[in-house]
Amino acid sequence: MTHDHQGSTTGEEPDTRRFEELALPHLKALYRLAFRLIGDATAAEDLVQETYLKAFQSFGSLRSDDSIRPWLFQILSRLATDRYRSTRREVPLEEAGDLDRFSLYNQIADEDPFPYSNRLHDDFLGQFQDDDVRRALAALPEVYRIPVVLVYTEEMSYQELAEVLGCPLGTVMSRLYRGRKTLERELWECAKRRGLVKTWNR
C-alpha cells in the first residue's frame, strides 16, 4: 500500500531541492517526448507531471546522478505505454521480411511519380507538410515510436536508449531500423492517400 520513498534514508525530509536540480533541466525534453507520443498538449503536460511525481517518489532508486536522463525517460515511456497505448491509431507491426522488402527509395524510383523530374526523391519529400510527417510518426507502433522519437529529437545514443527501453543494444538497433522502415512505408501510404503521387497499377 505504501508508495515508494523519495529519500534513500528513513526519517529524513525528502531532498526536494536536489531532485529539482537534477530533474527539472530535462523538462523540455520530457515534454517534447510526451507531446510526440500523445499529440495533445494537455495530456502531455499531465503525463510529464505524473512522470515527475513518480520519479520523486522513487528518487531513492536512482542509481547515480548521471543516470537521471535515461531514468526519467524510462519512467515517462512506461507511463505512456500503460496509459495511452490503446487510445491511438497505430499501424500494425509487420513481419521483418515484409519490412525488409520495402524501400522508399526503390518505391519512388520504380513508381516514378514525377516522370519529368531529375530530382525525383527530392521532389517526393518536398510534397509533405509538417503535419504529414508528424502524423506518419504518430502512427508508428509505440515499440518503435519511442526510440525513433528519442533519436530524432534528443539524438540519444544507442547505449542510453538501451537504458530507457530496458533492452539490449541489439534490440535497440533492430527497433530503430524497423521503426524507420515503417516510417518510410507510412510516408509512401500518406503520399498515396493525399494524392501527392500518382501510382500506376501494374
Binding site: Y31, L104, D122, F128, V133, R134, L137, L183
Partner: peptide, 15 residues
C-alpha cells in the same frame, strides 16, 4: 536525407 527531412519537420514544441 530522409533522416534530416523528418528531423527538420518535427520542430519544437513550446513548453
Amino acid at each position: 536525407q530522409l533522416d534530416g527531412f523528418v528531423k527538420s519537420r518535427l520542430g519544437d514544441e513550446p513548453l
